[in-house]
Design a binder for these strands. Structure first.
Length: 504
RNA sequence: GUCCCCGUCGUCUAGCCCGGCCUAGGACAUCGCCCUUUCACGGCGGUAACACGGGUUCAAAUCCCGUCGGGGACGCCA
């Protein structure tokens, strides 16, 4: 098959803000479809909204997509056979198509003012009628319209919607039909001369030979207008696939008040791109059989099909994303996690900006120890507080911990450490274990009764990583010069005993 | 309000198009047990759904109609 026969899809965001997770899924499905079919994935920047579009958002957007691994075959930066890939560079094209539609009487000038239209709309709604444009200017005599325009009266251009129902095919939803009674003659060019989204999107998709329009279902009721435009222009109508909306837990459209919604948010939280992609792929699509969850990129490309996209809206589930992220965190090569995680610890002020080899080696062991405990890398500094921060008072203040020390034996256990480790320098994991066993024999405490008090004394919590790895890490950390001093085991025990004393 | 879309465990979903294999499968979450001289990880197991009402049929999650519920669109925004 020739390349020109292959599907061509596009992702067409407007650079008016951060890349939203819903748009990312749209981009992903487009990309998967293109990669699966050997087609082309086009990136087009929709910046006809001059007021809100900003260059920095465009730059960010492309960076976000690269981070996610969504590469495009054609776009404003790499070019392609159907330039330009930025709408603001294309105004004259839109203008000439509009002129042609006027000439062929498929579109007409509309002199109605915004206020007038708003009034009509309100009235229609109040009367329970379909709030569509009355078509008043449609019947205007051409010569008269021309005269009024030359007299300087502002006029928008409207497309004539045909007098029959408009049908189109949607891969996700099947055949969709709209009665022409419910669709207004859409404005395609504003009275300012600036073309409107619903119009340029069709021109662009047609110009770029887009074969499959895959987008959010908020566009579904725009589609009849666009189909009418394709037909007026005599251009082939593409296939559509409208993806359902992503909702928040309250079943409302996912938005900022639900928390993280942009790619940047997730990256900053320490979510891996492959976890995000895997999760989003599963949100609205499932493989046949539906019993597989882990999908590396290649498998996703192999298995993906638009026919299997579900039409129902989906609620974004952070727990499942976390689960996938934990999975990929564990799967990643340690070096990758080390460097990513180090960034989070640096920003939290726990590691120096530039670390020598001994610090880096230590930090890597710290990360290895703690990473299995987190959903997202951003939780690492918090987790690391067991190493960097000691606060015996606070530890004893907690309900759970004070219960442990309500038992006199718990106090005796910790006291047992004082003299035994006083001269040990450095304290090894082996020595620590030996001491613990001595205390076990002496006090008769074992299991939780033995380990809970010791843990609380050392890290402020009765649960945490294995002592065999924890002790050496604390001891070595205490001898490194770090932005935040790591207290040695001895210091911890002493301070804790002091706090216990004080409590009495 | 009108139009459009959607409706299987709490959540994502498989099954639906082509009725019987569905005693409705998987995953996340949750609960329990095991592992662990703590916890987490891991392993094993449990709870949990065809929105409702009518049809059609020997047989309906699957087909038809209605109701209810949710979302979206109705713009000289994208």
């Amino acid at each position: 098959m020739d390349k020109t026969d292959k599907p061509r899809v596009r992702f067409a965001p407007s650079p008016t803000g951060q890349l939203h997770i819903g748009n990312v899924r749209t981009a992903l499905y487009n990309w998967l479809f293109a990669r699966k079919t050997g087609g082309s994935f086009v990136l087009r920047i929709e910046d006809t909204d001059v007021e809100r579009s900003e260059k920095r958002f465009e730059t960010q957007l492309m960076e976000d997509m690269k981070w996610l691994g969504l590469d495009w075959d054609e776009g404003p930066d790499v070019g392609g056979p159907y330039p330009p890939y930025r709408q603001s560079d294309k105004m004259s094209v839109y203008r000439s198509y509009a002129d042609r539609l006027i000439r062929e009487q498929k579109a007409y000038y509309c002199f109605c003012t915004a206020e007038q239209l708003e009034r009509e709309r309100q009235q229609a709604m109040a009367e329970g009628r379909q709030p569509i444009y009355s078509g008043k200017c449609r019947e205007l005599d051409r010569d008269e319209a021309e005269r009024r325009r030359t007299d300087g009266e502002a006029a928008a251009i409207r497309l004539k919607i045909p007098e029959h129902p408009i049908r189109f095919h949607d891969i996700v939803r099947g055949n969709v039909e709209f009665s022409n009674e419910v669709v207004s003659d859409p404005i395609i060019v504003r009275s300012s001369g600036m073309p409107v989204y619903n119009y340029v999107v069709v021109i662009d998709d047609a110009d770029m030979k887009i074969t499959h329009v895959i987008r959010g279902d908020d566009h579904i009721s725009n589609t009849p207008k666009q189909v009418a435009l394709y037909e007026a222009l005599g251009l082939p109508v593409p296939e559509f696939a409208h993806l359902s909306t992503i909702l928040g837990p309250d079943r409302e459209r996912l938005s900022k008040r639900h928390g993280a919604t942009s790619v940047a948010n997730f990256r900053e939280m320490g979510v891996l791109p492959e976890a995000l992609m895997n999760y989003l792929a599963l949100l609205g699509w499932a493989p046949s059989g539906g019993d597989r969850e882990i999908f590396p990129e290649d498998d996703l490309i192999r298995e993906f099909s638009l026919e299997r996209v579900t039409p129902a809206p989906a609620i974004f589930d952070n727990d499942k994303l976390n689960w996938l992220n934990r999975h990929y965190l564990k799967q990643s090569p340690p070096e990758r996690i080390h460097s990513l995680a180090a960034g989070f610890l640096q920003r939290a002020g726990l590691l120096p900006e530039t670390a020598d080899q001994s610090i880096t080696a230590w930090a890597n062991r710290l990360i290895d120890l703690l990473a299995p405990y987190v959903d997202r890398l951003e939780q690492l500094p918090q987790r690391a507080s067991i190493i960097f921060h000691t606060d015996p008072q606070a530890a004893l203040a907690s309900e759970e911990n004070s219960q442990v020390f309500a038992n006199e034996k718990a106090i005796v256990v910790v006291q047992g450490f004082g003299p035994r480790i006083a001269n040990d320098s450095p304290l090894t994991a082996e020595r620590f274990k030996a001491v613990t066993n001595e205390i076990k024999a002496e006090t008769g405490a074992k299991g939780k009764d033995l380990f809970h008090p010791v843990r609380i004394a050392l890290i402020g919590s009765h649960s945490g990583p294995d002592f065999d790895r924890l002790i050496p890490l604390i001891e070595e950390g205490s001898r490194l010069s770090l932005p935040v001093h790591v207290e040695s085991v001895r210091e911890r025990v002493q301070e804790f005993l002091a706090a216990l004393e004080q409590r009495k």
